Computed example of a mutant assay.
Amino acid sequence: MSNSRSSEDLPSQSSLSSITRIEWQTAVLALVIYGGFLGLTWFWQSLPLAVVIALGGWLIAWHGSLQHEVIHGHPTRNRSINDAIGWPPLSLWLPYAIYREGHLTHHRDEHLTDPIEDPESSYLTQAGWDRLGLVGRSLARWNSTLFGRLILGPLVMIVSFLAQEAALLLEGDRARSNFWIRHAIGVAAVLVWVIAVCGMPLWLYLFGFVYVGAALTRLRSYAEHRYADHHDERTAIVENSTLFGLLFLYNNLHVLHHQRPGVPWYRIPALYQRHKQTLVLINGGLIYDGYLDVARRYFFRPHDDLRHPLHRSSSSMISSEYL
């Protein structure tokens, strides 16, 4: 049975996306995340530092998962309301509007992993690889291990993203400028609350919330995709992840998300179990038994050759990996 035929065996997107006016599960989740953020930043001095960092990193990563959910049309039928829920820049570095634009481009599945067409690709063209130089290639190899992705990955992701955005702004991209002006207003509001009102040191927020949260997000994205000849086989499944499944809003069952991106997070586990055989057939058996299995395989070993197989003699630009 072909991948396309297997995909047809899944329920249609329209039947899975028939929702009430408000998905209360997601609305409540948003209240928990924003309420938790306000509570943690307000009471941080009453808590052990390790607890502040653990909860802060969790909340920022969870907020990123919520943003991903609203990008895909949840929890209401009104995009303006959804965007308002996802907009607050708790992570500081990634404007929601740019995330939305890039992530929806990423969902052109026929281009998955392509460093030119997929904004979330971790691969490089041969020309991009050559431009890194010896030191850059060593850092890139280190970043392709899970250990490196968790320790170094957030810095690589944030710095490379900001450098690319700075280049666009210097070229006079007005749409980008408008995105960043609105984002800067939100960042200022977050920092006034955190530093001026709650008295948290900037270093603690940048490390304990932003960096740790980015590292948790890098754990999710680390093994999500790898190149295969058929685009359906480029998307992985990470099973048996109760805690991280909740943190990632079940994006660990990633092939289901790419096959039916409009399915709300709370319906994914049951739908996956119901159609597991079909989904594993679709993705060619790219499946892991939890994130410990991912760590066992790749903690100190590269996940893949960073040079994309279809661009090893290309003169194309480096990919814009930021999620």
Rank of each mutant, 00 (worst) to 15 (best):
Y288G: 04
I282K: 10
Y272P: 12
N283P: 12
Y291T: 02
L279Q: 13
K276F: 01
L286F: 01
I268W: 10
L286G: 01
Q273P: 12
F300A: 13
P264I: 03
V280A: 02
R296I: 00
V280M: 00
W265H: 06
D293H: 10
R267I: 02
A270N: 11
Q273N: 13
F300I: 10
Q277V: 04
Y272K: 13
F300R: 14
H275M: 06
P269Q: 05
I282P: 13
R267P: 07
T278W: 03
A270F: 04
Q277R: 15
Y266D: 07
Q277G: 14
W265E: 00
L279F: 06
F300H: 13
W265G: 03
Y288K: 13
Q277L: 11
P269C: 07
Y298V: 00
W265T: 00
L281K: 12
L286N: 01
V280G: 06
V263Y: 04
L292E: 15
Y291W: 06
R274W: 12
L279V: 01
A295I: 05
L281R: 07
P269D: 00
T278Y: 04
Y291H: 13
V263S: 07
Y266V: 06
R296H: 14
Y298P: 12
G284V: 02
H275E: 12
R296Q: 14
Y291K: 13
Y291G: 10
G290D: 08
R274V: 00
V294R: 14
G262Q: 15
G285Y: 02
N283H: 08
Q273C: 10
Y298L: 09
P264Y: 08
R267K: 15
V280N: 02
Q277F: 05
I282A: 08
P269E: 03
Y272N: 11
V280D: 01
V280Q: 05
W265Y: 05
D293L: 04
D289P: 14
R297D: 07
W265F: 06
Y298A: 02
Q277C: 11
F300V: 11
L292V: 13
V263M: 11
L292N: 15
L281H: 03
R267M: 00
R267E: 10
